[in-house]
Amino acid sequence: MRLLLVEDDELLGNGLQVGLRQNGYAVDWVKDGRSAELFLAAGTYDLMILDLGLPARSGLEVLRTQRRGGSALPVLILTARDTVEDKVSGLDSGADEYLVKPFDLDELAARIRALLRRRSGRGEPVIRHRDLVLDPASHAVMRAGRPVDLSPREFAVLRQLLENRGRVLSRARLEQGLYSWADEIDSNAVEVHIHHLRRKLWPELIRTIRGVGYVIDKES
């Protein structure tokens, strides 16, 4: 899962980036509205965390431009503006969530999970596939009631594939969910993670579509 964080405050941006990474997300962090638009145009994101009081271009302007352009990207506004009018105008401009600073990192993570769950059209917080249960909140994976030990990146790959069951995800798409722009990407990292997942779960879980990518089939 790859998030775009738009926050002009150095310390808060840094904390959020690290904190969200701890939660298993790849986070790109930009500090002004114009850069946010450049990043949105260039990359694929699963969610955007948007501050409103930004230099260059305000958060609301960025949001409205995105929505006008037809983007359905889940957007969580994270701001110091706490009046009802601010919240209403934020949500009416196309935001899906509105969180006022200072906030709790756990709550932010929960709201991000909820947004991502809603986007995938799922009601249940956990993802079930056959006898496999993946809990995005606790980062736990159970198979037939027994915990399966996965690394954070393996978990992230499995989660992406499960969230997009029936759809083939390219290696690049999976990589994007693992690394932010600042990270160095190891060329065959995704293959390694897939290999580990097949070994720890079962080989047929993830199918390779040669030259295209990987897929977990929908349950028939």
């Binding site: 405050d9 310390l11 808060l12 904390g15 904190g19 701890q22 110091a80 600073k101 709790d104 990192l105």
Partner: peptide, 18 residues
């Protein structure tokens, strides 16, 4: 203006805890 630095403090503290 105090909200943002406080949010930053809290976030960094939670990151440290985790």
């Amino acid at each position: 203006e105090l909200r943002t630095p406080l949010a930053a403090l809290k976030t960094q503290a939670q990151v440290a805890l985790r």
